[in-house]
Amino acid sequence: MPDFSEQEYQQLSEYIDGTLPASERAALEARLRTDDALRAELDALRDTVALVRRLPALKAPRDFSLTPAMVGRPAQPSLTPPRRDSRRITQFPAMALLSAAASFIFIVLGAVLWLSDAPDTSPIMTPIPAVASMPTTPPVTFDAPPDDVFDGMAEEAFAPLPDAEVDDADGIGAMRAFSAPADEEAEPELPEAVMQADMADAMAADDVEQAAEAIIEQMDGIEALTIEPEAAPPAPEQAEASADAPIVADDPPPVSRPARDIAPFLLIAGVLFALLALLGGGLTRRHRRS
C-alpha cells in the first residue's frame, strides 16, 4: 500500500464524491495522468466505496413499534385502526351465532317439556293405574268459613281448652306444665280485662313467674282462637272414607311435575339468549360500518 498523505487521501475522497473544488480538481487530474501509484490508489478507494455500497439491507430482528410506556405517556385514542381490529370484529358474529343456537335449544326444550306435560293433550299423561290407585291426601281447600263460625267466638276464645289439645298442637303446653303451678289451671277463663288486671297484679307483686305464666296463657288463648278451625283433625270416619274413596282419572290429584315446572325457566332463558344474539348482530354491523 503506497504511502500518501492525509491531504492527498482527502483530495481523492472528495474527487470520488465530486465535491472537490474546480481548481483542485484540475490539478489532481493532471497528476493522475502521470502518477500510476496515485491512480491505482484512486481506483482502490473507488472499489472500497463500491464494496461498502453493495452491502445488503438487513431485516429488523423484531418489531420496533412503540408502546405508550416507551414514550412515557398514557395511550391516546388512535386515529388509525389498529391491526387487531379485524380480530375483534370476528368476536361479535361468534357471540351472535352461539347465542342464537342456545336460544333455539332452550326454547325448543322448554316447549317440548311444557306440551308433553299437559294433562289433556299428551297420551303420556293418562293416569297409570298403579299410580292412580295410590292413596293420596285430599286436596287442601281454603274455603271461607261460614259466617256463623265466628258467632260466639269471643266467648269461646277464652274458654278453657283441654291442655292436651293445645299441647299437641304447638308444644307450649309442655313448657307450661313444667312452669305453672297446679292450682292456677282455671285462670285462662278470665276475659281480657280480667287477664290484664291479673297480669298487673302479678307484676305489682314482683312475681315474675306469675307474670310469665299469665302471658303464656294469654297466648294460648289467642292461638286457640286462630288455630282451632284449621288444626282440627278430621273425624275418624271422614279420614276413613277419604282413604277408601276411588280416585277418578278426570280429577287427578295435584302431583308435582318437575318437567313442567322447569319449562318456563327454559323458555325465559331462550328469550334472553335471543336478545343476546340480537345484540351480537347489532355490534357486528356497527363495527363493520366503522
Binding site: A57, D63, F64, L66, T67, S78, L79, T80
Partner: peptide, 20 residues
C-alpha cells in the same frame, strides 16, 4: 397529533432501513 399507532405505521415501514 399524538397518534402513537400512526407513528408505529411509520416504524413498521422504516424499521428495516433503520436497523440496517
Amino acid at each position: 397529533n399524538g397518534d402513537l399507532e400512526a407513528f408505529n405505521g411509520l416504524v413498521r415501514n422504516y424499521q428495516d432501513a433503520v436497523y440496517t
